[in-house]
């Protein structure tokens, strides 16, 4: 069985935005992005789209890790994402981690939270539905 920690979590888009793997926590990747111009919205605040990108990358990362752990090769396709913006993100590093709420044969439902200093005070959360197409069926 492949070690899920060896897999690539950060997509070209996420890399380009400055999103990086921070650490692993209970088999899910914690992703991190530093505050910089590329993620800034109005002056001194994180852009909602950049926060969404961080959330989404964490969501895909958690699912990718789970699929690797179970030896499953599947292509992931986005169905939808709903993002709640809870607090404004400041000029500090931001983190995100996802939880797989339901892993089915064809779809996965994933819940993601992003925070800065205090994990109990999320700046945003998201629910994602992802379609999985198994390699042999693709």
């Amino acid at each position: 069985m492949a070690d899920p920690r060896d897999i690539e979590i950060v997509t070209p888009y996420a890399r380009s935005l400055g999103i990086a793997l921070d650490r692993w926590e209970s088999d899910a990747p914690v992703l991190r992005v530093e505050f910089c111009d590329a993620v800034q919205g109005r002056p001194g605040a994180l852009h909602g789209g950049a926060i969404s990108g961080l959330l989404e990358t964490a969501g895909y990362g958690a699912l990718r890790a789970e699929l690797a752990r179970s030896g499953r090769v599947a292509q992931m396709k986005p169905i939808n994402i709903t993002v709640q913006f809870l607090r404004s993100g400041r000029t500090r590093p931001s983190f995100a981690r996802a939880r797989i709420v339901k892993l089915g044969r064809r779809t996965a439902n994933i819940s993601v939270e992003a925070w800065q200093d205090d994990e109990t005070k999320p700046i945003a959360s998201a629910v994602m539905n992802i379609l999985m197409v198994d390699a042999e069926a693709a």
Partner: peptide, 17 residues
């Protein structure tokens, strides 16, 4: 802005922005 290495498909994040 690709969603996956080796693919030519735009990531979904930029669409949200």
């Amino acid at each position: 802005l690709l969603g996956e290495d080796g693919s030519e498909v735009l990531a979904s994040g930029p669409i949200i922005s």
